[in-house]
Nucleic acid binder design. Structure first.
Length: 493
RNA sequence: GGCCCCAUCGUCUAGUGGUUAGGACAUCAGCCUCUCACGUUGGUAACCCGGGUUCAAGUCCCGGUGGGGUCGCCA
């Protein structure tokens, strides 16, 4: 008996993410990668990255690099794959051609597949004819029942699978439950092209089989491929893996999230966009994890919590629509949860992009971060809201200056300069007390002074608290800016 | 069109026969307040429709409708 043989469900998961390098790393693809990765990390399994580059017309090396970079940025490290190797490599399909050929020949020899010499042109013609007659095109079993004696030596041929003519296959999807498909709706699909390069279903099955993948987690657009693949596993005499399909991520109006339509709706599809827009990787993971998966009422998850709590049983099976506002809220939550020092280090390159060179441990930066944190959702926001701490003088927002740096403000600005010039305690508390006292003595209200002072110090009408800003800016810079603004106000008056 | 799948607030979702149908984003109102935020309090808001099964249905079954996927020598 084979009791010594471990059943897939008993062994550690071997899962994979198998993107095709035809462009960018899709946010939906990242979610597929994430769920597989989480499962492997949770159970101490193996996460494999495999590049499905068999579409030679569209695959590019640049795209491979983008995918690799994206995976690294997200922190989805793989145990086997490009760069790290592994016992079942190579991990690029185009480097595994001999393997596919071998299995294809074996299936043909066993009568489970066959050579089809029909040309693409011939089939296209038949397809067109069927369409013209409003008929469903179905591969006519041109070569299904022929054998080696009929082979045309030297002529190009494809290898087709001999799909059972009747019966049906049912599989138990880990998120969708039982799914069935009658065999007579499945054509004799192509395994190997005439140039020897495998098509998706064949390449994926041979690789998953030879790489020992025991759980296939992928998008629900692959549900349709699952039964043909199971038939292949059976023809190969291989153990069929478990399947887990994830519902689709759609645009806000329910369309497929292609880059073009997403762009129109202001949705970021390429993972790289999140990086350039100043998201933290963990925030991206949190948002996409909660898309189609939930753990009770919890919304905020750290990476460790995701690993601890993820399971396929709590994945939903309903396609969802991208919610931009919620996505950015999640980003803000992670930003706020990040330690100041880490945030400072992360924002340095974004400040550099704005022409500001600062060290991650710069005291002003470290002082500014906590002020800006509750007001920012991304590193871009943090950079935008901290630049003025590092520039010579301020870049005035025109509307703000026009509204607040006016004749009526000159007195307040000059008064502030006067009272603060004598200040020795430049702490938030010290500044607060000193200004309060001055306000009381001069019969002014903070409301009249705050906005002009804010514009003077930051150039904008919105900013962190005045005393906090001045404290970080320091006495000299603060007074300089106040004086400059007073002059500007009197000139424009 | 054939085949497959799906259906709880506007959105993401909790819910596995008995709940005042919960949370979050968004939205509205209030509080906080030097601006903007953050935070906080409260409100509006959902079980697609029709049949069954059952003492009892958002939960199970059937049909309809709506939505998605897929029908390649793409993946």
């Amino acid at each position: 008996m084979s009791s010594s043989r471990l059943r897939p469900s008993m062994s550690k998961p071997r899962v994979r993410f198998a993107p095709s390098p035809t462009g960018y790393l899709h946010i939906g693809g990242a979610r597929t990668a994430l769920f597989n990765w989480l499962w492997a990390r949770k159970l101490g399994g193996t996460f494999i990255l495999r590049i499905e580059d068999t579409d030679q017309a569209r695959s590019t090396d640049e795209s491979v690099q983008i995918i690799l970079d994206g995976m690294r940025w997200l922190g989805l490290d793989y145990d086997e794959g490009p760069g790290v190797g592994g016992p079942h490599g190579p991990y690029y399909q185009m480097q595994r051609l001999a393997l596919y050929r071998e299995f294809a020949d074996k299936l043909v020899a066993e009568g489970k597949a066959y050579r089809c010499y029909a040309t693409k042109e011939e089939l296209d013609r038949l397809r067109k004819e069927a369409e013209a007659k409003k008929q469903q095109f179905f591969y006519p079993h041109l070569w299904r029942d022929k054998g080696p004696a009929d082979w045309v030596e030297g002529a190009p041929y494809v290898v087709r699978f001999k799909t059972p003519l009747s019966g049906e296959t049912v599989f138990d999807d880990m998120v969708f439950g039982p799914i069935r498909a009658p065999h007579d709706t499945i054509q004799d699909f192509v395994l190997l092209r005439s140039d020897g390069v495998p098509l998706y279903n064949f390449g994926a099955v041979i690789d998953d089989y030879t790489m020992g993948v025991n759980l296939v987690g992928r998008g629900s657009d692959h549900i349709i491929n699952t039964v043909p693949q199971i038939l292949l596993y059976q023809a190969l005499g291989a153990e069929v893996p478990r399947f887990a399909h994830l519902p689709m991520m759609l645009t806000p109006d329910g369309k497929k999230m292609s880059k073009r339509v997403a762009d129109q709706q202001g949705i970021d599809v390429p993972v790289d966009n999140y990086r350039s827009k100043g998201w933290l990787p963990d925030a991206v993971l949190n948002y996409i994890a909660r898309f189609g998966w939930a753990s009770g009422d919890q919304e905020y998850f750290t990476r460790a919590e995701l690993i601890e709590k993820f399971d396929w049983a709590h994945c939903g099976n309903k396609d969802g629509r991208y919610d931009k506002k919620k996505a950015w809220w999640v980003s803000g939550q992670h930003l706020r949860a990040t330690a100041d020092a880490a945030l400072a280090a992360a924002v340095v390159p974004f400040l550099a992009a704005r022409g500001v060179t600062v060290a991650a441990d710069d005291a002003r930066l470290l002082g500014a971060i906590p002020l800006v944190k509750p007001r920012a959702e991304t590193l871009v926001d943090v950079a935008d809201q901290t630049v003025y701490f590092f520039t010579d003088g301020v870049d005035f927002d025109e509307k703000a200056a026009a509204k607040f740096l006016v004749a009526e403000s000159v007195g307040a600005l000059e008064g502030l300069v006067e009272v603060l010039s004598e200040a020795s305690d430049w702490s938030v508390e010290g500044l607060h007390h000193r200004v309060e006292a001055w306000l009381a003595a001069s019969g002014r209200e903070i409301k009249q002074v705050a906005q002009p002072a804010r514009v003077a110090l930051t150039g904008r009408a919105a900013s962190p608290g005045l005393f906090e800003v001045m404290s970080v800016l320091g006495k000299e810079v603060s007074l300089d800016r106040l004086r400059a603004a007073a002059r500007k106000a009197s000139v424009t008056a």
